[in-house]
């Protein structure tokens, strides 16, 4: 197993790398976790992780600024079908469009838009920050193995991903209305929350992702 975490200067990747290292070690199989800016590392990887914090457009342009990375990502994830995990804005980038500070085209891997959260209760705080309870059908996806509906994960975001197809949404949370928490389709999964910050639930999710064969 070889996990490539893509570094495109979007936030701190140390804790993400440590969480994956922990999950690899606990899984009892040999594996390496690499934080990389080298497109060639994606070819050598078995699993690809795209983190991301900040604004959609900044992340998109940040990724484009790493020479050859966007093409390598498409080739390895869409062409070769390697298991892919997008975290937070890394998940949102799979959308068709980001509607944050103007329209920005996403990868278009999971059709849908990323738009500002607009909870029905206007007294609710934005960003949606803290621990929220996942709502999902037990058995919906191998990445949820051993995780119970109602388990909490850590969120911090002001924009949400609304996939066009209901079937692409694996889990939601409630914030005066449904907010997409996990998306999944074929070899792609994405979390709006931060598994690397979600204590045992997050570590279990990462372990499941590493064990998953799409």
């Amino acid at each position: 197993m070889r996990v490539a975490i893509i570094d495109y200067e979007s936030g701190n990747l140390r804790s993400a790398a440590k969480a994956f290292e922990r999950a690899v070690a606990d899984g009892g199989r040999p594996g390496a976790v690499e934080v990389t800016r080298d497109p060639a590392a994606l070819a050598a990887a078995t699993h690809i992780v795209l983190p991301g914090v900040g604004a959609f457009a900044d992340c998109k342009s940040g990724l484009a600024a790493v020479d050859g990375m966007a093409d390598a990502l498409t080739e390895q994830v869409r062409g070769r079908g390697k298991p892919f995990l997008g975290i937070c804005v890394g998940m949102q980038l799979m959308a068709s469009w980001g509607r944050e500070h103007g329209d920005t085209e996403g990868f278009g891997w999971i059709p849908g838009d990323v738009a500002a959260l607009d909870p029905a209760d206007k007294a609710l705080k934005i960003p949606h920050m803290g621990w929220n309870a996942l709502e999902f059908e037990p058995g919906i996806h191998p990445v949820m193995d051993g995780i119970s509906p109602g388990a909490h994960t850590y969120f911090v975001h002001s924009y949400g991903f609304a996939p066009e197809a209901e079937s692409d949404v694996l889990a939601r949370v409630d914030y005066a209305g449904p907010v997409t928490a996990i998306v999944g389709r074929e070899n792609l999964v994405g979390t709006q929350f931060h598994p690397e910050k979600s204590q045992r639930v997050g570590l279990r999710f990462i372990a499941n992702f590493l064990r998953w064969s799409p």
Partner: peptide, 9 residues
Amino acid sequence: GVDDSTGGT
């Protein structure tokens, strides 16, 4: 929210 008996961390 995690069932540790089924593997994982």
